[in-house]
């Protein structure tokens, strides 16, 4: 018998509960791993996790909405987080932000209609000596210039192509 989307989601959550444990302190690791695959934590996912851990869904909702890296709305395959904090600001983050908006055709806080990219602000990401800095998913890019934006985005784009290479690591130390 073929699995429905809901069955798959439940199976995924079962697997994560198995891996991280069936207790409250496993909640955040479970949600983090779930989101990596689903790019969002839906109401159904929150309900299912809550049932498994024996807590109220509102508890899960409270956690999801608290943390910047947990999202209840859909996020793109690549989440770009540009640092807006002071050192990157002084190093010229506004020009990079502008170019990101131009090249992606979206504003900060939005996801491209094809679901590939989400653009967000980050607070200091610990690359202040090499600003402007940004994260693309888990990778850090430093000394980003408006000219470099295009290269970074096209490296991401390739991930959707037939050869799907990894983006080259660019953070220094």
């Amino acid at each position: 018998m073929e699995m429905t989307q809901q069955d798959k989601l439940t199976a995924k959550i079962d697997e994560l509960v198995e891996r991280h444990g069936c207790h409250r302190s496993a909640l955040i690791p479970i949600l983090q791993d779930f989101q990596k695959q689903y790019h969002t934590i839906s109401d159904l996912a929150m309900q299912t996790v809550a049932d498994k851990l024996g807590i109220h869904p509102v508890e899960v909702y409270g956690v999801v909405t608290f943390y910047a890296f947990l999202n209840e709305n859909y996020h793109g395959r690549f989440v770009i987080r540009l640092c807006r904090t002071i050192s990157c600001d002084m190093a010229g983050k506004d020009a990079v932000a502008n170019q990101l908006c131009n090249d992606l055709g979206i504003e900060f806080g939005q996801t491209t209609p094809d679901g590939r990219f989400t653009l967000e602000w980050a607070n200091c990401i610990g690359m202040c000596d090499q600003g402007p800095a940004m994260l693309v998913n888990e990778q850090a890019f430093t000394r980003v210039t408006p000219e470099k934006v295009h290269d970074i985005l096209s490296a991401c784009e390739k991930a959707f192509g037939p050869h799907a290479p990894q983006i080259e690591e660019e953070h220094v130390l």
């Binding site: 409250r24 955040i28 690791p29 608290f66």
Partner: peptide, 25 residues
């Protein structure tokens, strides 16, 4: 290793502990 989730206040030690326990920081 326990991964944080993008919340500055979780650097405060009691908020960090809340976060480790699976709570809001």
């Amino acid at each position: 290793i326990h991964m944080g989730c993008g919340a500055y206040v979780c650097g405060e030690e009691t908020a960090l502990i809340e976060s480790l326990e699976g709570q809001r920081g």
